[in-house]
Every structure is written in C-alpha cells, then in structure tokens.
Design a protein around this nucleic acid. Structure first.
Length: 483
RNA sequence: GGCGCUAUCGUCUAGGGGUUAGGACGGAAGAUUCUCAAUCUUCAAACACGGGUUCGAUUCCCGUUAGCGCUACCA
C-alpha cells in the first residue's frame, strides 16, 4: 500500500514551496490510489504557534485537495523516545552531557567541521548510566561509524543513487537535553510507525537523508523511497523566505488576489515538474493522470515575481497570471459568476446574483485575477460614476462639437430603441451613418459616458446589461460635463 | 572551511552523440475589431567556461566557475 505524507512544521504561514510539496504528494497518492497523511511536525515548542497552524490549514483548505489521515507529532513523543531508546540499547547512540549551546556562537569563525564529541562518545556505559542516574541532563547522539570508510547510501527517485562516507556525517542529536526528540528522530520514527512508503519533500533535506538512512537502519526498519524536489527560489536565486520576500511567498496572498486554486496548483506543478508533452494549462484530473516522479527535474526553479513590484500584478509570476486567466476562461458563466460574486460583495457592493451572471460574460476575457472584476466591471456596481476627464468624451479625429452632437443624438435614439444587442447595434450604426460619423467615433463618447473610461467591454452588451434608465442618465451627465 | 546537489532563450521547460535545439510565459511587430481584452500570424531570444572521449559533442567523462542546500540539543 502506497502511503505518502506532507509534514509541515507550524512556524509560519503556508508558503508556496510547502504548498507545492503538498500538491506533489497529493498527486502521487491519487495517481497511485495511495493514502496521503498530513502530519504536523511540531516538535520545536519554542517556535510553534497556533496562528501558524491555522494559516497552514487555511491554505490547505483553499487548495481544496484534502488528505486521508492526520497526526500531530507532539502527541507521539512516547513513540519517538521508544525508538531512540531502542537505538541507544543497541549501542548506536550515546549520551552527550555537554551543556547545550546557547545561540549560534559556536558557528562564528568555525571553518572546521564539527563531527562528534570524543569525550562523550567514548564514555563508558557504566559512567554514562551513573551520570544519567544522578540527574545530569544530556542529549542523545547517534554514534555514526568512524574511521571505517563505510559508506551510507540511499536511492532517490529524482537525484538517483546517493553515497556519502560516514566519516563526513556528524554525530547528530536524536533527543535534546529536555528529552524532546529532534526533527530527524521524530520524522523517521513517525515515518516508520505510519508505514510511509514514499517520502516526497524539498531538496533542502537531501543531505539530511543520510542521517535518516542511519536512523532507519538503526531502528531496524526498511527506509522509504525518497524523492526530493528542487527548491523554489526568488528571482535572485535566494530561497523564498517570509523575511526577505514578504507576502509574495504566502499561499493566502494568491487566494486573496483572486487566483483560482486549480490555476495556482497548475502553476506550482509546472515549477520543477513537466508532463514532457508541451501541455501547460492542465486541469486537476489531467495533472493527476500525468504525474510521475520521473517528470521531476533536479534544478531549482525561479518564481518570477518582481521585487519590488511596480504594479500589483508584478507580485506574481506572469505565467501564474496567464494560467489563472486561462482557467478563468475555461469556467462556465455560472461557475465564474458564482466565484466573482463573493469578491464583489467583499468590496462592499451589493449586487444580485442575476446581475453578476449578466456581467460575467462581458469581463471573462478581460480579467486575469478574480479581483480584477472590481476594476473591469466597476461601472456596473456604482450608482454614480467616479469623475472622469470630459476630454475623454471627444472621439478620434473629432472635437467637442462632435461629441456634443453624438451624445445628443444618442440620447434621442436610445430613448426609443429596445435595449438588446441587435437593435442597439442597428440603431447606433444608423445614427452614425446619418451624421456622417464613423461607427467608432459614434461609440466612444457613449462608452465613456456610460463606463467613465475608454477601455471597457463591448458597447451593446454593456448597454443591454446597464439598461435604458442608467444609460440615459449617464449620457445626460456627460452632456452637462461637456458643455 | 567541509560535504553534497545543480547548470538549455529574461523565466518555466522539451530534447539528446549528427536537430534549422522544440514549446510556453513575457517582449516586439502585424492581422482582426466599436475601445480594451481575447484570438490569429510573424520576429528577437539559450545549450556557463576549459579540457578530454569520439569521425562528430549542447548531450558522455574530468576540471573550473557560479548558484543553492546541509554542516544546530531548527525543521
């Protein structure tokens, strides 16, 4: 039975790199009818926060992918200690009574690799037991084979066969002096206990995996299949971090900007993985069907946002924006309308579902993010148009007099025309012809009068949705402005 | 410093001993159109560098350089 896990540590919001790891695990589980375990790796009591736990769940819920089982590492400490003890009893670990380092002072100027603590490593078992019994606190360290030139190895589904001399691996800690397990121990102990068959995680753990191989072996367990994912990095190549890059790395930023979860998932999948057949826009189902560990590449992928962003859109990778637009266009009017409505309501406009439904086809091709509805369809939502420059009412190659004439005539004909696309089309074109104006010259003043700007959806559809009353009132106001 | 991983257009990537090195985003130009979008067409844009191996390397090997990761009683 295939079992994978996503194991975030709740020390910050859910960031895009973690989201991608989750998605890949989900895809792999679904593709192979396996089980996805969500495990909160919360053994770092100092740094864990409830806010972070909430943020992670919030992000995962938005992704709308789900999982099958859920655990908290902090509730499984007995298991971790039991496995640590088993390793210790086999003589594969030793007690280190050296007081814990405070801060990272030991790193300053240190160009010598710390590998182990000879005094403690050689301590006799009797002496070690005596000091422990006397209540002296200690960390438990793995006794990595020394001087034997023995290699530690594991196979990675992405990076291939990995081999390292044990002489280059330090005696890492299993238990801290407060008896709390370290990440390495807790993670492996839980992977063993939860019968995880495949560990799919970020490449920052690739070199840690040698330690994990040692723990699995020490615990007498068969190691899972590992698959490390290339890292997601900022345009300058640095690791994505909250401190340096701010909200651009948080999943909720994408949600709040109006990304569709399916588009966001699609985007993340294309970072470090390829279906190898030139497909870009893919549905959740298509991704599931196409996903395989073989398609994962080995080099880091840049999330191409601008830093700093000159426009709000520059916060996002252009490809993410394009994919979102693609997914938006793939939605039916019903679906898109339903997703747009809460965005409009959240902005404080009260608009009926039927109205939204009528507006949706007019903007579907003009928005990249759901929030763009607020700028693309603003004139549908307000009673009073915000102020605009009356000069905008003047058509191409025309003057004020022409604008005046056109709007006056439009007011006349629109008072009688049926407010449907075809009649509006015929009437306004006829009016243009009769005045010796080009169609475009006729339409622009009306468009500006009604929308408050030159760039807007097609005119007849817009008028149809707006209705006669509003249209005439706005033309009236435009006439006042221009005089 | 030590150990490790990586290196194809600006970005995401396909490819692989002989190719006009393909696609996508973004950019530029044009077509279409009532504006803006959308759509369509075209263009510019890459195998990090140096040695091998080979008839032939962007592809295989080694080195250099660069980037990244690990080197915590963080995860």
């Amino acid at each position: 039975m295939l079992r994978v896990r996503f194991a975030p540590s709740p020390t910050g919001f859910l960031h895009v790199g973690s989201a991608r790891t989750f998605i890949f695990n989900w895809l792999y589980a679904r593709r192979n009818r396996g089980t996805l375990v969500l495990r909160l790796d919360d053994t770092d009591v100092e740094r864990n926060t409830d806010a972070s736990v909430n943020s992670i769940f919030e992000g995962l819920r938005w992704l709308d992918l789900g999982w099958d089982e859920e655990y908290k590492q902090s509730e499984r400490l007995a298991l971790h200690r039991q496995i640590a003890d088993a390793i210790f009893q086999k003589g594969l670990a030793y007690r280190d009574f050296t007081p814990a380092h405070t801060g990272d002072s030991e790193k300053s100027g240190a160009n010598q690799t710390w590998l182990f603590n000879p005094g403690m490593r050689e301590l006799s078992r009797a002496e070690s037991d005596r000091r422990a019994a006397a209540g002296e606190s200690f960390a438990l360290r793995f006794r990595v084979p020394r001087g034997t030139g023995e290699p530690v190895r594991f196979n990675d589904a992405v990076y291939g066969e990995q081999i390292k001399s044990a002489d280059d691996i330090e005696d890492f800690a299993l238990l801290r002096s407060d008896a709390m397990p370290t990440y390495h121990l807790a993670s492996c102990a839980d992977d063993i206990d939860l019968r995880i068959s495949h560990v799919i995680r970020g490449q920052d753990h690739l070199s840690n995996t040698y330690k994990h191989a040692l723990i699995f072996e020490g615990a007498g367990a068969k190691p899972p299949q590992f698959a490390h994912l290339p890292l997601l990095v900022a345009p300058d190549g640095s690791k994505l971090s909250k401190r340096r890059h701010g909200p651009v790395v948080s999943v909720t930023t994408y949600r709040d900007a109006g990304f569709l979860p399916e588009a966001f998932i699609n985007f993340l999948c294309l970072l470090g993985w390829s279906p190898k057949d030139d497909r870009e826009k893919m549905t959740r189902q298509e991704l599931t069907d196409a996903f395989s560990l073989e398609g994962i590449n080995r080099s880091n992928a840049v999330v191409n946002f601008k830093e700093p962003a000159a426009t709000p859109d520059e916060t996002f990778d252009p490809k993410a924006l394009w994919l979102n637009a693609e997914h938006i266009r793939a939605l039916s009017v019903d679906e898109l309308s339903a997703r747009l409505l809460p965005v409009v309501h959240a902005a404080g406009f009260s608009i009926a579902p039927e109205q939204m439904h009528a507006i949706t086809p007019l903007i579907r091709e003009r928005i990249k993010l759901l929030r763009d509805v607020l700028t693309a369809a603003d004139f549908f939502f307000v009673d009073q148009l915000p102020p605009y420059d009356p000069a905008e009412l003047i058509p191409q190659k025309g003057d004020t007099a022409m604008a005046l004439k056109i709007l006056t005539r439009a007011r006349e004909v629109l008072a009688q025309t049926e407010f449907k696309h075809d009649p509006l089309d015929q009437t306004l074109r006829a009016a243009a012809l009769e005045m010796g104006a080009k169609a475009g010259q006729m339409f622009q003043p009306i468009r500006v009068a009604v929308c408050g700007r030159k760039n807007a959806p097609p005119l007849f559809e817009t008028l149809e949705v707006l209705g006669r009353e509003t249209t005439l009132a706005r033309i009236e106001l435009a006439l006042q402005k221009i005089q």
